[in-house]
């Protein structure tokens, strides 16, 4: 956007004060407001990683579209994977309001310079995994994302509102799929339990490292980018999921999981943080495959982007010629 009117810029001290006051009044920061460099950088990194996660997140379930057992399940899965693409695009759009360049963000992802959520580096072994991803992974995403609807940066918060509305469909279709399988054969029930066993711990890791080893959290919370700590959100997810597992008739694979009446929460075991670090650093079961797939999709789509650009240029030239004649 261009600025047609520019007032004299107030001194930096005044700008910082105005920013701090806006945050403390719980008002939103908007794209063209002055903001500290650290705030901008933190947001760009967080929003870009979030966008990349949505885009890479299309792959584990996308693999099952052609193999889904009915037209109904195919249509649902298609809609869900399309939503993930949409979520990625809402978020890239929000990142661009901070001055990030879209092509540069894509390059950062495919060159491995920016991360995406560790969860998408695990394989989808059976169709039950599609259901468990909807239930656990989208359920965890909802825990994470609902508070982000009140994030201090306006475009990010607004993108999250749209995303949260759509995530609810994602979670419910997953749970419904699992309920259907649990009413099926013994083999189908075993598939569901097996998927639950494999996805439970990686889902808990989605909330990030524990609070005492999450160095950037305090600043993000002071800036009201984040509203709750990793451990608070993880606890919320466990408390939410336990009764759902009971209803479904599956066992969550944690011998330490039990209700603690004193705390009013469930106690639960410790995720394998070494595994989380390993997967984040590229050592998960599917990191290479996911990146390779994203890179080849980008490269194989190049001719489409070039053709569209050429077509637009030709049409513009013709229109100009027509206007002159």
């Amino acid at each position: 956007m261009t600025t047609s009117l520019s007032a004299e810029a107030p001194p930096p001290g005044h700008l910082q004060e105005h920013f701090d006051a806006t945050i403390s009044r719980d008002q939103r920061i908007e794209p063209r407001d002055w903001m500290p460099d650290g705030y901008r950088k933190t947001l760009v990194r967080q929003i870009a990683q979030h966008a990349h996660s949505e885009i890479i997140g299309m792959q584990p379930e996308g693999e099952w579209i052609t193999k889904a057992p009915s037209l109904r399940r195919k249509a649902i899965l298609f809609a869900k994977v399309q939503d993930e693409a949409g979520h990625g695009l809402y978020l890239y759009s929000a990142a661009e309001t901070l001055g990030a360049d879209r092509a540069d963000l894509t390059d950062r992802l495919i060159e491995g310079r920016q991360k995406y959520s560790s969860i998408f580096n695990y394989p989808t072994m059976s169709f039950a995994d599609v259901g468990v991803i909807g239930w656990f992974v989208d359920g965890a995403a909802i825990c994470n994302q609902v508070p982000l609807c009140r994030s201090s940066y306006g475009p990010y918060a607004r993108a999250m509102v749209r995303i949260c509305k759509e995530e609810s469909f994602h979670q419910r279709q997953g749970y419904e799929l699992l309920m259907t399988m649990m009413r099926g054969t013994e083999a189908q029930r075993e598939m569901v339990q097996d998927a639950v066993n494999r996805w439970w711990w990686p889902s808990l890791m989605m909330f990030g490292p524990p609070d005492d080893s999450s160095p950037n959290s305090a600043q993000s919370m002071a800036w009201k980018i984040k509203r709750h700590s990793n451990d608070e959100l993880r606890q919320r997810f466990v408390d939410m999921t336990v009764p759902q597992a009971d209803k479904l008739g599956v066992t969550l694979p944690d011998p330490d999981l039990r209700w603690n009446a004193e705390r009013g929460h469930h106690d639960f075991g410790t995720p394998d943080w070494d595994e989380l670090m390993r997967v984040i650093k590229g050592g998960g079961p599917c990191n290479d495959q996911r990146m390779q797939r994203r890179r080849s999709a980008h490269e194989e789509g190049a001719w489409v982007r070039e053709a569209a650009t050429a077509h637009a240029a030709k049409q513009a030239a013709r229109a100009e010629k027509g206007a002159v004649a």
Binding site: M1, T2, L5, E30, D33
Partner: peptide, 30 residues
């Protein structure tokens, strides 16, 4: 992207560079 669930009955698009905007601060003397 923006109307997958009946969110709209009409859409406008405009090149971002064609938007003229007031100054950055909401408390602007403008």
């Amino acid at each position: 992207l923006y109307t997958r669930r009946n969110e709209g009955v009409s859409i406008w698009v405009v090149r971002s560079e064609h938007i003229a905007a007031s100054t950055r601060d909401e408390k602007d003397p403008f």
